[in-house]
Amino acid sequence: MVTDLRKDYSEGELPAFLHANLASPCLDVTTEKRQLNGGNMNEKRTITHSDLRQFTGDSVRYRSIHPQVICTPGIHYLAENAGAFWLVNTIASYYSSPEMRKAIEQDIRVADMQIWRLDVRDQTGVLTARADAGEPTFIRQVIDYTDFPLDRADIWGVSNSVHTTLMLPSEY
């Protein structure tokens, strides 16, 4: 099932930065994706940190599972090539959580930007979120098992009054 974020707005309401710049594929794993992968949902290609640094930002956005969270092409590439739609969906699920609301009450900077990091060691991951580098974490989730192919992934969440955009640091 392919979704289009434009359906959430009437023509006059669509924010200018989103006008005609939304890619229609969503980040949900779908029947079409299974068919494209020959039925293997766990198929992954090789991905490196260097691959991710090549993304420098543009106006294309992809939908996540959360209605106010959209993603850049770099995040979409990470999810597709690392088999990490689960990571994007996990981060997106925190945006209406009590932990996020509490973090915003304690540090107003969190309302505008969040720095997420997945650290992986021995097929165990730890996902954290901070207001800024060197600040204490306000979200910490242990991932008991992951086959995520990198030792870490940094994802920034940049929020405005309409959406939070998940992006790679190089796309900021």
Rank of each mutant, 00 (worst) to 15 (best):
G125F: 03
A79Y: 06
A23V: 02
N37H: 05
Y77T: 08
C71I: 00
Y9W: 15
A82G: 14
W116Y: 15
R63L: 02
T128L: 04
N42Y: 05
I108G: 04
E135A: 15
P67C: 02
W86K: 10
T124H: 09
P15C: 10
S50F: 00
H49P: 04
D51C: 01
D122C: 05
T31R: 15
E80F: 04
A16W: 09
V88S: 06
E99T: 15
E105F: 13
M113A: 11
E11V: 14
E80M: 11
L36K: 09
M100F: 15
L27Y: 01
A79Q: 08
V120G: 02
M41C: 00
D119Q: 11
Y95V: 03
M41E: 05
R45S: 04
N21V: 00
P98L: 13
A131E: 03
Y77E: 07
S97W: 08
T31V: 13
S24D: 02
R101Q: 15
H49A: 07
A129Y: 06
Q106T: 07
S97K: 07
P15L: 10
H66R: 01
I91G: 05
G134E: 08
C71E: 02
E11L: 14
H49Y: 10
R130E: 07
A84R: 08
T46N: 05
E32Q: 12
G134L: 06
Q114F: 04
K102W: 11
I91T: 06
A79S: 14
Y94G: 01
